[in-house]
Design a protein around this nucleic acid. Structure first.
Lengths: 346, 346
DNA sequence: GGCACGTTGGAAAGCGTTTGCCCACCACGG
DNA sequence: CCGTGGTGGGCAAACGCTTTCCAACGTGCC
C-alpha cells in the first residue's frame, strides 16, 4: 500500500460528483440547505472514503478553532486540578480540545496566555483564579485583552471575582467564610487566628472579610483576630503555622483561607507538638478531595470544585451565547469535621 | 479608531517593500538566507506594525502546529497533575501550547485522543499512564495510531511501560517495589497484604511483581501475601481497606500500589478502628506531595513526578530528534515515614 | 405567459502562511 | 568575452477548508 495522502473534502466532492461547496455544506453545518439526495450522496462518499475534516484548515477558514483554553494558577494544586477535571469532561463531551495554561500567579503570564489563545482563535476561555486587588492596572490590561478575545468571537467565563468581560462564576467566598465564622463561634471560639494569602489576593481578602463579619455578628471582638499572611499555598500555610505554634496562646482556633494552606499549617503545628483539635482547632476553605481522608479530617467550607469546572466550561461553550453576561454565585457550605472542636475548657 | 484588521505578513511585506516570500523568510527561520539589509527592513516593518504571525495559518502551511498534547488518565489525580505541572512548565518555556486530554482509563478514549492530536498536527505527544496488559489489541491499535502520528512528523514520549513507538520514560516500578519489600521485611513484617489495581493494569502488576520478588528475597513466603484488588484510585483503596479491616489478622503490613489507594485504605482502616501504624503498617507508591503532610506521614516509594513531566516534555520537544527512540528508567527511592513501624510484638 | 422571487448548485475568492521554482544578477575562470 | 555556478528575490502555487456571489431553475402570482 502506498502511503496514502489523507482524504480531503475535494476527494469526497469528486467521488460524490458534486462541487466542493456542496460537499462542505452537506458535511459541516451551514446556513445553506442542500437537497436531501445530494446530501445523502455526499455523506455516503465521505463514509466510504473515510473522510475526516481537517481542523486546522477549518480553523483558518472559519476564523475559529475547536480549542477551549483553561487558564489556572497551578495545575498541581488540587483546587485547580479538580476544576480542570470538570472542565475537561465538558470539553470533550462537546468535541472540543482543551488547552491548559498555568500562570504561576503572575498577572502578566495570565495576559500573555489570553493573547496566545486569541491567536489560536480559541472558541472559549475559562479563567480560574483570584485576581489581585492591589494591581488594578494588570486587571485592566487583562480586561482589555479579553475584550479583544471576545471581539474575535471568543467567549469567556471566569471563575473569580466579577469585573472581567464575559460570564462570571463566583464561589460565595464571603458568605461561606461568614457562616464558618458563625459555626466556629458557636463552638465557643473567641480567640481566632487567620492564615491569609498575601495582601491583595482577592479570594483571600473576600474570605477574610466574610470571616470578620461573621465573627463580629457573633459578638467576637474583631480586634482580637490575629492575621498571619504568607504565600497562598501549602508552604505559606506551613510558615504561618510555624509562627503560630511558637506563640499560640490565647488562640483556640485557626482559620486558613484555603485548604492547602490549612494542610501546611496543620503540618507545622503538629511538628511543633501542637495537637489538632485538642490544642487548637483548624479550619480551611475549598474542600479539596484529599483532605477528607486525613486525620483529623479538615473542617472546611465546601465549594463544588468539579462542578464549577463543568459549569464554567458549559457556560463558555453553550450556544447560543446569552445576550447579557451572566453572573452566578456558587453557594458555599460549611462542613465541620474532626479538625474543629470546642476550645479546651480553661 | 476603526476596528483594525490584524496585521498580516502581506502588510509587513508591503511596508518593507519586499515580496511575501522574502518577508516570510526573514521573519521565520528558513533554509534560505536573505540579505542582511532586507532582513533588517522587514524586521523593522514588523516591529513598527506590530506584526504577530498567525499560528493557525502557519500550522496549515507547515503541516505542523505549536501544540503539544498531554494525555493522562485523570487530571484530578495528584499523580497526573504533578506530572502535568512539569510538562506545562517546559511547554511554555518553549512557546508551545499544551493541550490536555483525559482518558478516564479507557484505552479507546486514549486512542481517540491521539487521533485528535494527529489531526491538530500536534508537534509532540506526552502519554502518561499505565497500559493494560490484558488488552493487547487496544495496545496494538494505540501503537498503530502513534505510528501514524509519528509519520506525520509528530514526536512521542510515553511515561509508562515500553512497547510504544517513541521515547519511553519508565519509573522503576519493579525495582522500587522490590526495595520497599526489603525495607518492610527489614522492619520485621512477615504477613503482608497488597492492595492492587485491577488485574491487567501494568503499573500495578509491575509493582506487585517487584514486591513479591523483594519479599521472596527476604525469605518471606510468597504464598502468605494476600492480594486485594480494586479500582486503581482512592475509592478502590478505600474498598480494599474496608475488607482488610474486617479480617486483618495476621497481617501486620499493607502495601497499597499507589499513594491514592493508600490514602483510601488508611481512611477505611481508621474508620474501622484500626490504627496505623500501631495495628498495621501502611505503605504506598508515588510520593504524591499531599501525603507528606498527613498523619501518619505515608511511607512510600518516591518517584520525582514533576521532574518526570518535565523530562518527558523535553524529550518530546527536543531538537533534533534522536535517531533511536530512547528508553530511560527513572530510579525510585524508598522513603520510610511514620506510617510504617515494626510489627507489634506478640 | 411573463415576472419577481425563493431555492440551491457551483465557481472562485478568500483565510495567512510557506515553499518550489524560475530568473536576475554577480563573480569567477577559461 | 562568454559560460558556469552560486546567491537571493519574487511569483504563484500550495495547504484544506468556508463562504460570497452568481446563475440556473423552478414556483406562484397577476
Amino acid at each position: 500500500m502506498t502511503t496514502s495522502r489523507p482524504v480531503t473534502l475535494a476527494d469526497v466532492a469528486r467521488q460524490a460528483g458534486v462541487s466542493l461547496a456542496t460537499a462542505s455544506r452537506a458535511l459541516n453545518g451551514s446556513a445553506r440547505v442542500v437537497r436531501p439526495d445530494l446530501a445523502e450522496r455526499v455523506c455516503a462518499a465521505a463514509a466510504e472514503l473515510g473522510y475526516v475534516p481537517d481542523p486546522v484548515a477549518q480553523s483558518l477558514a472559519r476564523k475559529s478553532s475547536n480549542l477551549v483554553g483553561l487558564i489556572v494558577h497551578d495545575i498541581a494544586d488540587p483546587f485547580f486540578s479538580s476544576i480542570a477535571a470538570g472542565a475537561m469532561r465538558v470539553a470533550d463531551e462537546m468535541d472540543m480540545v482543551l488547552t491548559l495554561g498555568a500562570t504561576g500567579r503572575d498577572p502578566r503570564r495570565e495576559i500573555a496566555l489570553v493573547t496566545t489563545m486569541k491567536l489560536q482563535r480559541a472558541r472559549a476561555l475559562v479563567l480560574v483564579g483570584s485576581r489581585l486587588t492591589d494591581d488594578p492596572e494588570a486587571e485592566q490590561r487583562l480586561a482589555t485583552e479579553l475584550e479583544a478575545f471576545a471581539a474575535n468571537g471568543g467567549r469567556v467565563c471566569s471563575v473569580r471575582q466579577p469585573g472581567l468581560p464575559g460570564d462570571v462564576l463566583q464561589p460565595d467566598n464571603r458568605g461561606g467564610a461568614r457562616e464558618l465564622a458563625a459555626a466556629l463561634a458557636g463552638l465557643g471560639h473567641r480567640h481566632v487566628a487567620v492564615i491569609a494569602g498575601p495582601e491583595g489576593v482577592a479570594t483571600s481578602e473576600d474570605r477574610l472579610a466574610g470571616f470578620r463579619e461573621g465573627l463580629a455578628a457573633a459578638g467576637v471582638d474583631p480586634g482580637s483576630i490575629r492575621v498571619h499572611r504568607g504565600r497562598f499555598d501549602r508552604d505559606g500555610g506551613y510558615a504561618a503555622g510555624a509562627e503560630l505554634a511558637a506563640d499560640l496562646s490565647p488562640t483556640t482556633c485557626v482559620f486558613a483561607l484555603s485548604d492547602v494552606m490549612a494542610m501546611g499549617a496543620v503540618a507545622a503545628l503538629r511538628e511543633r507538638g501542637v495537637s489538632v483539635p485538642d490544642d487548637v482547632s483548624v479550619a480551611g476553605f475549598d474542600d479539596i478531595p484529599t483532605l477528607r481522608d486525613t486525620v483529623p479530617a479538615l473542617s472546611t467550607v465546601r465549594i463544588p470544585l468539579e462542578s464549577i469546572g463543568e459549569r464554567a466550561a458549559r457556560m463558555a461553550l453553550e450556544n447560543p451565547a446569552p445576550e447579557e453576561p451572566r453572573h452566578v454565585v456558587i453557594p458555599a457550605e460549611v462542613v465541620l469535621r474532626a479538625s474543629t472542636a470546642p476550645p479546651r475548657a480553661g
